[in-house]
Amino acid sequence: MKLLGALLTVMAAWWLGRLMARPYRLRVTALEQGIGVLEQLRPEIAWHQRILDVAFQRASRSYSVWQPVAEILSQQIGQHESNFATAFHQALITVPGLWEKDLAVWDELGQVLGQSSAEFQIDHLQAAEAELARNLNEARSQGLKTARLTEILVSLVGVALVIVLI
């Protein structure tokens, strides 16, 4: 019984550690996929000249985190009511894992997306991509380090608790 209890305590601590580290890992996924969406958006806008909601839907097809954004965006635009920046922001806040500084980059892009000719749109997309790539590097180097440390520390707390209890 003691052995089972100790095992469960360690496992619970490890799971808690994973839970606490989740935002860091989610951010990396959201940024990686977001950059992928931007890369796909470029030909959709510059070459195919598809309208934004269709372009976004096609660009996000392979990126599960971003698919709901495309759906919300399409609904909002289809109603002919809100401006794009507002609709884009409302869609963005449904993406799990984006931090304030990442949202700021996306919001800035939302202000100019669709508002100029294709060549300027490409410039805006590239600028946002470069900014997000910097955020991704930071998320990978510091965020993942923090995530691993959090997991290890919380797991060790579990081990320590078991030792104390025994």
Binding site: R50, D53, N83, Q115, S117
Partner: peptide, 15 residues
Amino acid sequence: ELVSIIADHSLYARV
């Protein structure tokens, strides 16, 4: 805003 809405917020496609 009206122009943006009737152009589906995609002015690049309506240049």
